[in-house]
Amino acid sequence: MTTRVKSVNLSPSPHRTGRACVWVEHEGRVLMVGLEWGGWTLPGGGIHPEETGAQAAAREAWEESGARVEVTGEALTLGGGVLCFPARLLSLEPSPEGRPVTWVNPRSLPWANDVQLRQVLAGMGETPPALALPERVSVALAEAERLGFDRSCSLEVGRLLRTLAASRPGGCLAELGTGTGVGAAWLLAGMDDTARLTTAELDPGRAKVARRVLGDDPRAEVLAGDWRKAIPHGPFDLLFSDCAPSKRETESLEVLVDALRPGGMLVLDNFSPPAHLPEGLHAGDPEREALWNYPGLICTEVAVSAGERIILAARRG
C-alpha cells in the first residue's frame, strides 16, 4: 500500500538555482525522509539564490527531517545535477515539515539499488559487487557520453535485458538501434557462449563506435544501416526494439512479430506510466493499444523505475 505523508513545504520559493541533498551516515546507516507519494529519499530540496549548495543542503536536512547537520566535504553530483553533500549528524528532532524519517543500510539490498543511494555509492567507489556494471557496459556508456548521445537504455532496462538473455540459452537475439552498444553489452552479459546477437544502427558514426565496443566478442554482429537489415538474421528468440522507426510506427509491428520464433519475446522500453503521460495520450496510447490487441502477441507491462515502463510481448506458439 502506498504511504501518503501529510507534510508542509517550508521553502516553497520558485526562485531556485539548483537542488541539493545530504548524505548523513551514522553507525553504517543513512538518513532518509518519507515522500508524499510513498517511498523514501535523501533529505534535500531547492537551492535559494542567496545560498550555497552546502547551506541549502543543511537547511533542507533540518526542514525535512529535523536533523541538525554539519557538511563535512565536497558534493557529489547526482542525476539531474543534484548536489549531494556528506554531512555529520549533530542532533535529530521531529521533522518541522511533518515527514517520517528512517535509517537504512545503503550497502544492502534493496537500498543499495535505490536510484539516489547507488549513485552516491558509485561516487564513493563502494558499489556492491552484485550491482557493478559489466565492463563492456561501462565502456559503451563512456562512449555515449563522449558523443553526447543520451538515448541509451536505462540501467533498469539493461539489467532486465541481461536476465532475459540468460533465459535464452543458445538463442538468436537481436537489437534494433545499437547506439554506442549499451543495450547490446547488457545482452551479451547475460548470453551463454552459444547464443548469437545481431544489432543494427542507422548512424554510421555510432555503428563504428559500437563495433569497437563489441567487436572482440564473436557472439555479436553490428550492422550499419536501417533496422530492417537485422530482420533476415532471424527468426529471433528475443528481440529488443530500441529505435523509433521500429517501435513507434504501428505498421512495422507485423514485421517485428514475424521476426520472432513462436514463444519469442519482443521487448520495448521507454513507456511512461500513467502519472507521467503527456496530455496528448490521456485519451489513450495507440502504441499500447496496437501491442495489446495484436492477435499474435501476449503482452504484459512492467515498471522498471518510477518513471519508466517496458512492454514484454511474447509471440503465441
Rank of each mutant, 00 (worst) to 15 (best):
L297N: 04
I311D: 01
F240E: 07
D269M: 03
L121Y: 02
P262F: 08
G53R: 01
D216I: 10
V24C: 09
L281P: 08
R4Q: 15
L256V: 06
V157E: 00
A20T: 09
D258S: 13
G284L: 05
A244V: 12
E301T: 12
P12F: 00
A283S: 14
A306P: 11
F149H: 07
V304T: 04
T194S: 15
G280Q: 14
V267E: 03
A259K: 00
R59P: 04
D258C: 12
H48S: 14
A144K: 05
E93I: 10
I298W: 14
L121T: 00
A20R: 04
A54S: 09
R219D: 03
G280D: 13
E50Q: 15
K229T: 14
R228G: 03
E254K: 13
L117C: 10
D242P: 00
T102H: 14
P14K: 01
V137D: 03
E60S: 11
T72S: 11
C172F: 13
E287N: 15
P204K: 01
L188G: 04
H233M: 10
W62M: 10
L10E: 04
L160Y: 01
E221I: 13
E143R: 13
S152N: 13
R68H: 14
E50Y: 14
L76P: 09
V222E: 00
E156P: 09
M191A: 10
R19Q: 13
V137L: 06
E175Q: 09
L253H: 02
E156Q: 14
R151Q: 14
Q55K: 08
L268V: 10
G66Q: 01
W292A: 10
P49C: 10
R16A: 12
S138W: 08
G179T: 06
A142D: 12
R88I: 08
A185Y: 00
A166W: 09
L312R: 05
G215H: 07
Q119G: 07
L161F: 02
V69M: 01
L121I: 05
L76W: 11
E175N: 08
E279G: 11
V257R: 04
A142E: 12
W23S: 04
K208S: 15
H276T: 12
A259Q: 05
A56C: 08
F240T: 03
R159G: 05
W62S: 07
G80A: 06
A58N: 00
K6M: 15
G46I: 03
V8F: 07
H26V: 15
G170V: 11
G80L: 08
K6E: 15
S246W: 05
G263E: 09
T127P: 05
E135N: 08
L90E: 12
A244H: 12
M32F: 11
D203W: 03
G307A: 11
E145P: 10
K208N: 15
C299W: 07
G73Q: 10
H233K: 12
P86K: 09
S152K: 07
D114T: 10
G39W: 08
L141V: 08
G18A: 09
P245R: 03
A210M: 04
S13D: 10
E308D: 01
P94H: 08
A57Y: 02
R315Y: 05
T199D: 00
T17M: 11
F240C: 11
G28L: 11
V304W: 03
G225E: 04
G280L: 13
L312W: 06
P106G: 01
G225I: 00
G264S: 05
C153A: 09
E97Y: 03
S95G: 06
S272D: 14
D216P: 06
A75S: 11
